[in-house]
C-alpha cells in the first residue's frame, strides 16, 4: 500500500486515509484567458511516466492538502511538502535528481 508522510501532522499516512487530488502546481486560468489556456488548465495533464508532482489530501487525518513527488514508473516516493509552495523544496528536488540526473522541475510545468 502507498504510504505518504503528511507534512502537517507528521505521520506516515496509509493510502486508505488519503485522497488523491491530481497534478500539482497547475497554473489557474479564468475569465479573459484564451481557449488554449483554459483547455490546458482544465484537461491537459503531464501524465508523466516517471517523476510526478501531485496533490494529496490527508482526508481521514488532519484534512489538509499537501504535495508529493512520486515516480509513476516505480512507485517510489521522493518526498512530500506543504501545499503553500510554488515549487518543490530543495531536498525533494535533490532526491529526484539522485534518480533522474537531468530532471528540472520547470519542464514539468
Amino acid at each position: 500500500m502507498l504510504t505518504l508522510h503528511c507534512p502537517y501532522c507528521g505521520i506516515q499516512a496509509d493510502e486508505t486515509e488519503l485522497a488523491a487530488g491530481g497534478e500539482a502546481h497547475l497554473k489557474r486560468y479564468g475569465p479573459g484567458s484564451s481557449d488554449d489556456e483554459f483547455e490546458t488548465y482544465l484537461f491537459m495533464r503531464e501524465n508523466k511516466k516517471g517523476v510526478h508532482l501531485e496533490r494529496w489530501r490527508h482526508a481521514y487525518g488532519c484534512g489538509k492538502w499537501f504535495l508529493a513527488a512520486r515516480d509513476t514508473a516505480t512507485l517510489e516516493v521522493y518526498g512530500t511538502y506543504a501545499a503553500q509552495t510554488s515549487e518543490p523544496p530543495v531536498e525533494v528536488k535533490a532526491a529526484i535528481r539522485a534518480k533522474h540526473p537531468g530532471w528540472t522541475w520547470k519542464e514539468q510545468a
Partner: peptide, 8 residues
Amino acid sequence: SFNNYTQR
C-alpha cells in the same frame, strides 16, 4: 486513484 504506469 493515482497516476500509475506499473500494472500493479
